[in-house]
Simulated assay, not measured.
Amino acid sequence: MDFKIVDDFLSKEELEKIDNRDFSEDIREAEKNGTIVVSEGPWEETVKAVKAKLAANATRAITIRVPVRVIERYKKRAAAVGIGYQTLMKQMLEAAPV
């Protein structure tokens, strides 16, 4: 297979390496961790699966009054683990029994 190098972004060897690589393990891992949707059916079924995944992960902005002391505690804990405090709050809400 002949390759055309554009702006020398990748060498011919690098392009051949990518072209010959088996991505099956990457796809299995992505499917397991939820970063890819794989469908055995027709394209329409894949589109439905992607839309369902997007809908399940959709977010909505809300307004809620939270005591400053609570926010400050979340900020400290989030900084300790290297994430944003709002992300931490969402994770705690997701894990909370309802």
Rank of each mutant, 00 (worst) to 15 (best):
D2G: 05
F3P: 00
F3M: 06
K4Y: 07
I5F: 01
I5T: 11
F9I: 14
F9V: 15
L10C: 03
L10D: 00
L10Q: 01
S11R: 06
K12I: 01
K12E: 15
E13P: 03
E13N: 07
E14I: 06
L15D: 02
E16W: 01
E16G: 07
E16K: 13
N20W: 04
N20Q: 15
R21N: 13
D22Q: 09
D22C: 11
F23Y: 15
S24A: 15
E25P: 06
D26C: 08
R28D: 13
E29V: 08
A30W: 07
E31W: 01
E31Y: 07
E31G: 06
K32W: 00
N33D: 15
G34I: 03
T35Y: 07
T35K: 10
V37H: 04
V37K: 12
V37W: 02
V38N: 00
V38W: 00
V38M: 01
V38K: 01
E40T: 06
G41R: 04
P42R: 06
P42N: 05
E44S: 08
E44Y: 02
E45G: 03
E45H: 02
V47G: 00
V47E: 14
K51F: 01
K51V: 05
A52F: 02
A52E: 15
K53T: 10
K53L: 15
L54Q: 13
A55I: 07
A55S: 14
A56P: 05
A56M: 05
A58M: 12
T59W: 00
R60C: 05
T63N: 13
R65D: 10
P67R: 13
P67A: 14
V68N: 11
V70M: 11
E72W: 00
E72S: 09
E72D: 15
E72N: 13
E72M: 09
E72F: 03
K75F: 02
K75Q: 15
R77G: 00
R77F: 03
A78H: 08
A80W: 00
G82D: 04
Y85Q: 10
Q86C: 13
T87Y: 07
T87L: 11
L88C: 08
M89A: 15
M89K: 06
K90Y: 05
K90I: 07
Q91W: 04
M92G: 02
L93N: 08
L93F: 12
L93C: 10
E94I: 09
A95I: 03
P97A: 12
